[in-house]
Amino acid sequence: MSEIILKATNVSKKYGKHKVLDKVSIKIKRGMIYGLIGENGAGKSTFMRTVMGLITIDEGDIELFEKTGMKGLQQARRKMGQSIETPALYPELTARDNLRVQAANGGVSEREIDDLLRLMSLEHTGKKKAKNFSLGMRQRLAIASTLITHPEFLILDEPTNGLDPSGIVEMREIIHRLVSERGITVLLSSHLLDELSQIATHYGILHDGKLIKELSREELANETRQYIELETKDVQKAVVVLDELGIGDYEVINGTGINIYERLNDVATINRSLVHANVTVSRIGTTRQKLEDYFLQLTGGNHHA
């Protein structure tokens, strides 16, 4: 069984009367890329901060690398890196000096600085100060800064926030590379489910401070997969036809519709068979539930996902 890197149990946090985290329980195993999804204000950053020990929790327990207690967590956090919200950099310092500061904070050697600058394509920034970097460069430098201490667990809060499409692709590639080449476990957040679906292996959906759903990549794909949507008043007759056609993977929805999850290219054949069997077909066609719709369906709101 793979090692549990993070185990948060019933973590709650209140600001005044407002509960920003409400009994959130998350388990992250080594090698996972865990995506935390939620609209703005759902509690993603707050949860990440509690994990990093930046804010205190009112209730619950946090276990990191199977260690608990103040001392244990302090030791465990030395194996972690974070970039929460905006890239936390010293604007007056160069990329190299920013990394030197973080190396000193972590008590590690400066040997790897050149490699990291190369890895993040920042080797040519020279004496340019971080304040003059583009947002993409700042994001890359922030990640380089977290890597200098050789983390085994990386926490990235909205790493693609504000990046242009090419920057988003680049950031995605960097995260993939970190996981495949360095074996880092990642917890990252986004308010874009579509964006996270291209990176994460597991998902947790936060809404109003509550973790309302956890699912794996396979489960998400399953729940949002492409299917043939059939609308008919003769559901029972239609089911018989589908059985005759040898279709077994379908689902009856609300008594007037059937979602068929196989033979997606045989819409015409299925339609012809239904018509021959005197089934009145109101509508038939392939469709895919958009990730955004899936998210809205879960959160039950008009929030942007």
Binding site: L54, A76, Q82, I84, L89, P91, N105
Partner: peptide, 14 residues
């Protein structure tokens, strides 16, 4: 304000 304090504290520094 720059959030750089997080860099040290999140490494478990006292």
């Amino acid at each position: 304000q720059n959030g750089t304090i997080r860099n040290a504290l999140s490494l478990g520094r006292s």
